[in-house]
């Protein structure tokens, strides 16, 4: 190759290198909880944080306003009423009690009250106090914090898909 061609190529290569060198920017540490609208510390293990989406966060808000007094032990919201009640109401994160119950059953218990579903009359009916999506939000929140964790029932299998 002629010398001038060679020198031209070298010059081109150097400029290419120079333009591609960029200042290394500090990457943001990916925060696993940054995609969560809100978090709730696990009631059994305060170090663990459970991420909540918008609906679950609204459920958390409704829970801590209306339900926490009886369905939780003492919390920053205030001392608990739970020990005053017989039968003792289940804790909201009690997976053993709530996981086997369908969403429908829980929704009816909340909306119509305990005595309507054969449970204690101490559970008031909230259907006229809470809106339907607030009730749904509370249910979704309870499912999120359940220990042992809640598995939604299986979807209908492929034999039901319409093709």
């Amino acid at each position: 190759m002629k010398r001038r061609h060679l020198s031209l190529l070298v010059a081109l290569a150097l400029t290419a290198l120079a333009t591609s060198c960029q200042q290394k920017t500090i990457a943001a540490k990916p925060d696993p909880l940054s995609r969560a609208y809100d978090v709730e510390s696990d009631w059994n293990d305060p170090q663990k944080q459970i991420p909540l989406n918008y609906q679950q966060a609204q459920g958390k808000r409704v829970f801590y306003t209306y339900c926490v007094w009886c369905h939780a032990d003492s919390s920053p919201a205030g001392p608990s009423n739970r020990s005053n009640l017989t039968p003792t109401p289940p804790l909201a994160n009690d997976g053993a009690t709530f996981n086997p119950l369908s969403d429908e059953f829980v929704r009816n218990t909340i909306t119509l009250g305990g005595s309507a579903m054969g449970k204690s009359a101490m559970m008031p009916p909230w259907g006229r106090t809470l809106k339907p999506d607030e009730v749904q939000a509370v249910i979704v929140f309870m499912r999120a914090i359940a220990q042992p964790s809640y598995q939604p029932p299986a979807r209908p299998g492929p034999q039901y898909s319409v093709k």
């Binding site: 007094w69 009886c70 009423n81």
Partner: peptide
């Protein structure tokens, strides 16, 4: 006392709820 169990949240005298 029986039907609505108001004492789950309200106190009368020395017994009842704190809500």
């Amino acid at each position: 006392e029986v039907k609505y169990q108001c004492r789950s949240c309200h106190t009368i005298g020395s017994s009842g709820g704190y809500v």
